[in-house]
Design a binder for these strands. Sequence first.
DNA 1: CGTTGACAGTTAGACCTCTAACGATTAGGG
DNA 2: CCCTAATCGTTAGAGGTCTAACTGTCAACG
Lengths: 145, 145
Amino acid sequence: MDAPKLTTSLELVRWIGWAQMRAGEDWVRERELSHAQSFVLGYLVQKPGASQRDIAEVSRTSAASVSSLLQGLERRELVERRSEDGNERTKRVYATVAGAELIAGFEAAMAAVDETILAPLDESERAALHALLTKITGQLAQPTR
Amino acid sequence: MDAPKLTTSLELVRWIGWAQMRAGEDWVRERELSHAQSFVLGYLVQKPGASQRDIAEVSRTSAASVSSLLQGLERRELVERRSEDGNERTKRVYATVAGAELIAGFEAAMAAVDETILAPLDESERAALHALLTKITGQLAQPTR
DNA sequence: CGTTGACAGTTAGACCTCTAACGATTAGGG
DNA sequence: CCCTAATCGTTAGAGGTCTAACTGTCAACG
């Protein structure tokens, strides 16, 4: 999706964010992962043992989608589900070694994309941009971790 | 989708862009439009008479999706398709008055969201942000119009 | 205890988007 | 002219996400 006019700052933000997303999606596509799957896998690397409930909340998707999405990841042995703590109702989900390695590759690719996008700015400009963006995001609802 | 850590500038950009998109999606959802439909309708308001080919290219979606997407918009009388210029192969698409009104409401809503997001910045900060973002986007592939 | 209500996860069915294959129309070169 | 190739749009089938309804588990309270 292109931004239509690119006049206001936030149209520019939309455009940049979209360019990032497209690059990331290209990367995961080549590995036959969906955007949602890569996000969930990334979350599991940072939060091993998260419940499906947690995953649904953080990725702002439905519990039903998480269920089928994890089925796919489990089939490819990127993820494991177990019941623990004598709790048969909740399932804890863990990324496997293969899953963690995949995510490491993804994050490296995204960092490279970010570097490309920021290339036109020098150090002081980057610092200024970061300060302005931080000021904006401070006002928005914080992400859940 | 939340951004995971929010440390780098581009993670912040992702986060802001995502907040915008979510707000926009809420708005169109209430009107029973998909994100893709609202985008296409918006494009048609700016480019009356675009071909389906054009629409697919600009919205970076498949011609097949455009086809069924326009069927939905046509059923709701937000859009019209006609063949013109003695050309029976290409169909030209136009937003109806109702369609244009819907988009006007959408854009007003998005402008309000943007204002809320930018609220923490004063005039000079906004100018600085705009300059930095322009410098970045100048390097990226320009949108197709 | 036993019942009732809340909670975690799965399944069923609808919708939307995609890729691939297909008609139909147009343009261009012998 | 006509044959070929390219272009525009549609249809068919697969895959993914959503909502709603369901099963199974836990907790609380009489």
